[in-house]
């Protein structure tokens, strides 16, 4: 049974997953430590991807694949043909810079799918990334949430512009479907409904 929920014209259903997510190999470089602490990348504290990891990433030679942003940027030349046949998507981690993705393609909508990987449920950066991809960068194709994706995020994912959700393997996607409809009438405008409640209804005091 597939664990993928897709949203088509506002209707959610369980769908077959055509896309394979390509993962980076584990880092060969030893973590740099200072005073016993891992040296972190940027303020938000994630590790960088090494050139070696990028080179060693195994991309399946056929089928639809979603590759890591760092791999996509570094190895785009070898993916070019498959891009034209809509076989290549890109995934970004929540700490990665969207501008890097935008700069890597002439037209973002040449990508049939973008996925955002959320490592922990509590990492709400994914909602800003979805919002920006839709409202700032005009991405119109499938936007997928992957990683620690559980039913209680779904309503927020939908509102932030995500149209498919790969529910974590140990949970039921069928049961999760219900949470997309937790609320009927949101107050604020967001990606799925830009008009806030005061522009949708004539509320009378």
């Amino acid at each position: 049974m597939s664990n993928l929920i897709t949203l088509n014209n506002g209707v959610a259903s369980i769908s077959e997953n055509e896309w394979t997510v390509v993962k980076l190999p584990a880092s060969q470089v030893e973590e740099r430590k200072q005073a016993g602490k891992v040296v972190l990348f940027r303020l938000t504290g994630e590790k960088t991807v090494s050139a070696e990891q990028i080179a060693n990433t195994e991309i399946p030679s056929t089928g639809k694949v979603i590759v890591p942003l760092s791999v996509f940027i570094a190895r785009k030349a070898e993916l070019q043909d498959r891009m034209t046949s809509n076989e290549i998507g890109v995934w970004v981690d929540t700490h990665e810079i969207l501008e890097d993705l935008v700069a890597s393609v002439s037209d973002l909508n040449s990508l049939p799918i973008i996925a955002v990987h959320v490592e922990r449920f509590a990492d709400g950066r994914i909602f800003s990334l979805g919002t920006l991809l839709r409202s700032r960068y005009g991405f119109k194709n499938e936007l997928r949430a992957i990683g620690d994706v559980l039913r209680d995020q779904l309503y927020f994912f939908k509102r932030s512009g995500f149209t498919s959700y790969l529910i974590r393997a140990d949970r039921s996607a069928t049961e999760a479907l219900a949470s997309l409809n937790d609320f009927t009438n949101p107050y604020q405008g967001a990606v799925d409904e830009p008009r806030p409640v005061f522009k949708r209804y004539n509320r009378i005091a």
């Binding site: 709400g124 909602f127 919002t131 309503y155 927020f156 509102r159 949101p186 107050y187 967001a190 409640v197």
Partner: peptide
């Protein structure tokens, strides 16, 4: 009202 279940800011740092 605006801040109630604001989807983008549901899980801040």
């Amino acid at each position: 009202q605006w801040s109630t279940f604001h989807p983008e800011f549901a899980l801040l740092p």
